[in-house]
Each structure stands twice: as C-alpha cells, then as structure tokens.
Design a protein around this nucleic acid. Structure first.
Lengths: 213, 213
DNA sequence: ACGATATGAATGAATG
DNA sequence: CATTCATTCATATCGT
C-alpha cells in the first residue's frame, strides 16, 4: 500500500487557482487513525456494507480523529470493497474449483467466479427488459400505425428467452412532435403535471439554487 | 456530479486514465440539458416517481437533447430520490431546530405542522417492475383501478420552491486533530456488529455513547 | 514538473 | 424503496 499521513489541515488547502468550481475542492483525507479503525472494522469485524446506523456510529467515533462525515464512511466501505473485489477479479483465476467434470459444467463464463450470479453482461440484450404496464398509450401525436401487434423489436438477437412483453420503456418514435430544443420553460405541462394546483402549495423549505452542475 | 459529454461516440474525453478506453456507450451519459430538465421536474414540479406515461413523455422530450431511453429516466428518478433519502439517513440528527421560543413569540399552532408528503401518487405505478423472470403478470383484465388512465394526476403540485439538495450528506462539526487516549480495541461493539458467534445475546447491547462531542 | 497509481466521490444500473 | 455493484471522474500523493 501507500503510506499516507494526515495532512488535512483545517479545511482548506491552498488549492490551485482557477479551475472548475467543483464542489470537491477538498475531499476527505482520512487520518492514519481513521484508516486504521476502518480497516479494523473491515477486516476484523467483517463489516463490508455498514448500515446507515452503523455508518453514523462509525463516523461519530472517527470524528475524534479528524473531520469526517457519514458519507465518507459510506464511500470508504463501498470503495474498499469494490476495489478489493476488482483486484480479485483481474487476478489470475484463484483456485481451480473442484472440476466436477460433468458434461454440463461447460460454463462459458469468462469469470470463473462463484457466488455472484450477477451478470453484468456487456452485451445488452439483457436489460432492455424493463416492462411497463400494459398501458402502452402512445402519445397522441405519434399515434397511428399501431394497428398490428408491434410485439417485439428484434434488438440484437432475438433469443427466444426474452419475453419482451410489448412496451419497452421506450418507444423510439417521435416523428410528429418536433419540439426541437426550443427552450420552452413550461416544465410539467407536457408530463402531465398540472400547474394549476397552486392552492395546495405547501411552504416547503427553501430552494438554494438551481444550478445544473 | 454530472459532467457533460454530448454524445455517445467519438472523443471519449481522453481522460488521463490510461488503458481501457472503450467507453463505448454502455451506459447512458446524460447531457447537461437533460440533467437540467430532470432536476427541473424533480424540484420544481415535485416529480419523484413518474408514472409510466410520464416517463415516456419525459424521455421523448429529453431525446431532443441526446440519446435517452425510458429506463434511463426511470432510473434517474429512482436514484435521485433514493440518494436524497440515503444521505439523510447517514446524517445523525439534523439538529432539531430549536425555534426561538421567546415568551412573546409563541405561536399557537393548532396542528403541529410537521411533515408533509408531497404527492405520493397512488400506486398504480406499481407496474414499473422489471420483468426478468417469469413471475406473475399483471393482467389488464380486471378493470381495476390499478393502472393506466392516469390522465392528469396532480402530481407535482408545483410548489414553487426548488428545494435543492446541494447540501451535503452531513454537516459535521469537527475537532481538529484530537487524539483520544485510551483507545479500546473493542471495535464492532460500538458499531453494533454481532460477532455472529457465541450467542445472539449481548449483555450490554450496543451502547454507543453517541456523544455529540 | 510529470506521470502513475491510489483512492475519494459520484452515479448509472440492477436486485431484493 | 433500500441496497448493492460497476464504472468512471477527480484529485491527493508519491516516485522518478
């Protein structure tokens, strides 16, 4: 690893000049003690994904060693776990699993990993299966040729496994309505939110600003 | 935060990160305009969990600003909302705002106006499940009030406040480099980890002093 | 000063 | 709706 010492001087560092105003001018720089404790929890106590409750406690505890917030603890565990796994993934195939030489053990999976039946397939015919409710209610503007069964869209390869119902979350169509980027600030109206119900306005808290970072 | 890169191919921002520059459009990379509009809808219109129809409309609208699919919109709202809440969960106590209860400023509020729910739209929104396995199917047979025809639900209620969430996950006060002597190595006990051994009994439970420092 | 690497932060995509 | 994972971006730190 790398040896790091705490240099987290009070809050600010004379950061460089003129750069993007990314809010992360100062990211949390954990103290040695903080790291030590975090690792303790990780390795000795087996904490991998602390619950919100634990995060609070951990942060409160580590606060004695320097500035720290809940999200720092959260991210730390997330990253630590992820990187550990990542390392392990690209590391040579650990042990050859007991070769149960059955004819069916032909797992063409690139990873010989075990418990993670989690497939993050690079090929994307898998996700696209978000099914919406059967209210494939086309937009009034683009209605029309929906007479036949627009059953499936042969994305990629129609492996007969995917039962794409009918409405994907997306119907890549919108010919008629050409609302080109015209900057129409009437949000909400086109989504179905009505803006005439102002009588129910709840004086919610304030609104800092609305920057689109 | 969001960085903007307009489209999917070409010019992969050539980050300093070396190898593996095949960021070939696997995941949706929202453009600035898309983000801006999404936040508008979220904060200005109070849309938290858009219905299927809304998702379609939003996606259609946002498509003018770049490639986008319905599921992207769906996930965006899901994530945005979830993270807003999660952040809150990490943060211990929002420091109960002690209102200036001066003897003269007593406000006899009949209702302890406290927490409102904006418009948690009725759950005919349930259909937004991802259908990956042949589980049940919500058949549109029954004319139940379950779905569809959500013509114009007053979701949104556009309370003209833009409650932004740029506040961070926590606003912790922090002592500088405070070293507490007497570190006890009983990690985990204060975090609430069970040693998952012994018994399920813990004589002392977790008594994290949770001191506010 | 760079360049590489480690790592904090953010977020899209899923799953339960 | 909560939790988790993967991936990417941003930056701190160190080596040469």
């Amino acid at each position: 690893m790398e040896n790091q010492q705490q240099v987290q001087d009070s809050g600010n560092k004379s950061n460089s000049s003129s750069y993007l105003c990314r809010q992360s001018s100062t990211r949390w720089t954990p103290t040695s003690d903080q790291i030590r404790i975090l690792k303790e929890l990780y390795y000795n106590n087996g904490i991998r994904s602390p619950t919100a409750d634990q995060i609070q406690r951990i942060a409160a505890r580590l606060r004695h060693y320097g500035k720290i917030e809940g999200k720092n603890v959260f991210y730390w565990f997330q990253n630590h776990k992820a990187r550990e796994r990542q390392k392990k993934r690209f590391t040579p195939a650990p042990q050859p699993p007991p070769p149960v030489t059955t004819a069916a053990t032909i797992l063409p999976s690139p990873f010989s990993d075990h418990h993670h039946h989690y497939n993050h397939m690079p090929y994307f015919y898998k996700h696209q299966q978000l099914k919406l409710h059967p209210t494939h209610h086309m937009l009034p503007s683009e209605g029309g040729s929906s007479s036949s069964s627009q059953a499936f869209i042969p994305i990629g390869c129609g492996y007969g496994s995917i039962s794409m119902e009918k409405s994907f979350m997306e119907c890549s169509i919108s010919p008629g309505e050409n609302r080109v980027p015209g900057e129409l600030h009437n949000f909400g109206s086109w989504v179905g939110v009505d803006s005439y119900s102002f009588d129910k306005i709840k004086p919610d808290h304030v609104a800092p600003e609305l920057e689109d970072d």
